[in-house]
Nucleic acid binder design. Structure first.
Lengths: 166, 166
DNA sequence: AAAATATGTCAACATGGCTGACTTAAAAAC
DNA sequence: GTTTTTAAGTCAGCCATGTTGACATATTTT
């Protein structure tokens, strides 16, 4: 985007564009999470529970260490939500076969249903947003969001066929 | 983006694309806020303080009600961080002229410096991301993020010249 | 004069992070 | 085969930041 640095785009515009992006990030993330939070609250759960359910659903049979690496929280923090989810039968654990110390996590049917319903709310918002813009805009969104990530975050991301197509 | 609905893009791809976007939102927001949080913590402040400093800096002389409308939190929550910021001389208040009940908020020099330094970290991340993609990608990012917003969020956003240019 | 508004305050509670210290069982290393 | 490391879990307490409810004060509006 070299032209942002040319005289055609004076400095104040660049500054404004960056501040505008910061504000978009704040407001979009807030609106993005609000609806799902409401549904979760009606089940007595919070955003942290959804994250666990989401990534366990995405990685069935994941062990605790790997889940911690994705969530980037302490095991004590995870323990609180995870034991809640196990008690309420959203998640089940089974002992690892090659390494019996591991507890491999999977969603129960109840967990799958909840994951689907909550994530559906967020998918719907993206689907509606994508419908209102061009295909080019969607790939632009994805490119920018990927460029925002830390290097160490990249390996945590499941790349889609679409992204690989580019 | 009608073609996502045609047989050329089978359903599973659309689902994957939406889930990928959800994950990008989660990881990008986390990485986006992490650096600034670290700097804030070194001043004994949190993310909530930055939000207040940011929007007061953006709207000098704003009154408390309007600030609450932007932040969308309760006045009790704001009170905690705001009184902290006033005590530590990041923000000053003065009585409104037309309505003496109002407390109009502005940044002190100390507050301006902190706002600049913290926001700079986030601007830098966007600047680096924008540099690595095309101009088209940037406008796509902005279009999608705008389309993600609730209707009631739109009036809270300061539109840039660039967005109006489109 | 009465009602509504802008702001502030006290108290209590929930969520979801954190640290530190310690246990248990299994795997790996010696 | 004993020691060390690792995977997982637990207890206790702290912090930041959100919430509700109840109430006070000053000012503006009706």
């Amino acid at each position: 985007m070299a032209d942002l640095k040319t005289p055609h785009h004076p400095l104040f515009l660049r500054e404004e564009e960056l501040r505008y992006s910061i504000e978009l990030m704040f407001f979009a993330y807030r609106d993005f999470t609000a609806e799902a939070d409401t549904m979760l609250a009606s089940c007595g759960l919070g955003r942290a529970h959804h994250r666990v359910i989401y990534f366990v659903g995405r990685n069935p049979g994941i062990n605790v260490s790997d889940l911690l690496a994705i969530l980037n929280i302490t095991k004590q923090s995870l323990s609180r939500v995870l034991s809640h989810l196990i008690t309420d039968d959203y998640i089940c654990q089974e002992q690892g076969t090659t390494d019996k110390r591991q507890r491999l996590l999977s969603l129960t049917d109840k967990g799958k249903t909840l994951e689907h319903d909550v994530t559906m709310i967020q998918r719907r918002r993206f689907a509606q947003a994508f419908k209102s813009v061009s295909t080019n805009d969607v790939t632009g969104f994805i490119s920018v969001m990927e460029a925002m990530l830390d290097d160490k975050t990249l390996p945590l991301l499941r790349r889609t066929p679409m992204t690989r197509m580019k």
